[in-house]
Simulated scan of single mutants.
Amino acid sequence: MITPQLPSGSLIQVERTTNGLKLNWKNPDNPFLRVSISGFLLFWLGGWTVGGILAMQMLWKSYQESIPFSLFLLFWLGGWAFGEISVIVSLSQILRGPSRSLLSLGYRDIQYIPGRVPLSFFDFNLVQRSQMSNWNLWSNQKPFSAQKQEVQNLQLTTVVQYLRLSFDVGTRRIEIGTYLSEPEKEWLYQVMKKWLHT
């Protein structure tokens, strides 16, 4: 399949394989924001951990002295454990940073791995795009694969000043390249149109 020329400055990488085309691109990143938020979360985690240790010591002391447990303290420790785990998971995602999206256009099938965008909920532009594409801001879109004949209704549409490249697989609407620039989406649309008709 002959692909059109990539837009100038595009970060999309194209690889021809024996099964078709593999395209990949880096998802957006803001290192300063990642470091700042990571520093704050580490500081918060330190204070949160100290508070949890103090609460456990109070419960242990009550147990040793045969004093009834404080229900509030038990309830607080449950919330504390949930908060601690949530922050550790979020921190690990933020420190790992974004990952690359991968789109494989095979002769008979398509596979898409959208990759991580861990700070999308801190960037207004990314939030707008995520809301328009019905993304969950706290998790990443799931990878999918389908047979070529299942891909229907490929379209490039404008939704409130945002260009969306999508297609349907059964009852599911899939958006590709949410964070690509408009020229890159237009290029990808042409590539996918050719792929569907070869």
Rank of each mutant, 00 (worst) to 15 (best):
I113M: 04
G97F: 11
F121C: 11
W135A: 06
F82D: 02
Q131A: 03
W138S: 02
R116I: 04
Y112Q: 01
G79Q: 12
F124G: 05
M132I: 13
I113E: 08
S92N: 09
Q93A: 03
Y107C: 00
P114C: 04
D123R: 11
G97P: 01
F121Y: 06
M132R: 10
N125Y: 11
V127S: 05
Q131S: 03
Y112I: 00
V87F: 11
Q128G: 00
S92K: 14
W138I: 04
F82S: 04
Y107K: 03
G78P: 00
R100H: 15
N136G: 00
N134R: 15
G106Y: 08
I113A: 01
G115L: 04
R129D: 01
I85H: 05
R129P: 00
N136H: 03
S104V: 08
V87N: 11
I88H: 05
R96S: 11
N134S: 10
R96L: 08
L102M: 03
L119W: 11
V89L: 09
W138K: 07
R129M: 07
I88W: 11
G106M: 04
L95W: 12
W138Y: 14
S120P: 00
G115N: 05
G115C: 02
F122C: 03
F122I: 02
F121T: 09
V127M: 10
I88N: 02
L102T: 14
E84A: 07
V87Y: 08
F121E: 06
S92W: 15
R96Q: 09
I85A: 05
L77M: 09
F124V: 14
E84Y: 06
L77G: 02
R108K: 15
L91H: 13
V89K: 10
S120F: 05
A81F: 13
R116Y: 06
S86Y: 14
V117K: 07
G79I: 10
S130F: 08
D123M: 09
L77E: 13
N134E: 12
R129G: 01
A81V: 09
Q111H: 13
S120V: 06
F121K: 10
S101C: 03
Q131P: 00
F122Q: 06
S120A: 13
V117C: 06
I85T: 05
I110H: 07
P118N: 07
R100A: 06
V89A: 03
V127H: 09
S90W: 04
L119S: 02
L105E: 04
N136C: 00
D109S: 08
